[in-house]
């Protein structure tokens, strides 16, 4: 019973309180407060033409990629990103590597792939999240850095076929200046191929160093 009465009493009290406030004539003091609470300042839109916006990041990377069964090889690529907010970014990657012979090819002298087929090209679209923002200190200099994680999907062209590839990884963006960043990245590109006879999901680890410009 008590719980049913409670809202009724509270609503009644609230109505009384409102009536009491409404009955008071506005004093000079309140008019000043109104100005503070609702300043109604006329504002001018900031002129975007006068302010350079730097949300795009474009750059190169190079490193090593281990293509499962086909050795660990040099990889080179391009990377471009659009920073949606301070936390999230959208990134596109393109990488090329030339794989080696598998051990079966070396030992048994069989030929699995031609030279052209050995080139592996991938592209991907990734979504990134800046997890840790902070600074690194070298000598007496402080550099801004951020550690990010990425995940995405794309396409791998290898052995005359194309494979749906998903990838995930993490990296560190080291700002040498506001507009120039050095990267170190570690990513895993996963796809399924049947070059060795049966379907096999392969994990291809890539570690790279990169350089990007913001504009």
């Amino acid at each position: 019973m008590e719980s049913r009465l409670q809202p009724v009493v509270l609503i009644g009290l609230l109505a009384l309180a409102r009536a009491a406030v409404a009955a008071d004539a506005p004093s000079a003091n309140e008019r000043v407060l109104d100005d503070v609470i609702q300043p109604g300042i006329e504002r001018r839109k900031i002129e975007s033409g006068k302010i350079d916006s730097e949300n795009f990041e474009v750059g190169l990377f190079g490193g090593v990629m281990s293509v499962e069964d086909f050795g660990t090889n040099n990889v080179y690529g391009l990377r471009a990103a659009y920073h949606i907010t301070e936390d999230f970014f959208l990134e596109g990657n393109l990488g090329i590597t030339t794989t080696q012979k598998t051990s079966a090819e070396t030992l048994d002298r069989i030929v699995l792939l031609t030279d052209n087929q050995r080139q592996l090209t991938y592209y991907s679209v990734d979504f990134g999240y800046n997890v840790l923002q902070g600074q690194h200190y070298i000598g007496r200099w402080a550099f801004n850095t951020n550690f990010y994680v990425v995940a995405g999907a794309g396409n791998t062209q290898f052995a005359d076929n194309e494979y749906f590839t998903y990838n995930f990884g993490a990296g560190l963006r080291f700002f040498a200046t506001d507009w120039l960043a050095l990267h170190t990245d570690f990513r895993n590109y996963v796809f399924t191929h049947s070059i060795l006879g049966t379907d096999k999901e392969v994990q291809n680890l890539e570690s790279s160093l990169g350089l990007t410009l913001f504009f």
Binding site: I46, S48, K50, I51, D52, S53, E54, N55, H83, I84, T85, E86, D178, F214
Partner: peptide, 11 residues
């Protein structure tokens, strides 16, 4: 002086 912008941040 405001002269640069990255997302929601102004330099």
């Amino acid at each position: 002086r405001i002269f640069k912008r990255k997302g929601d941040w102004y330099q």
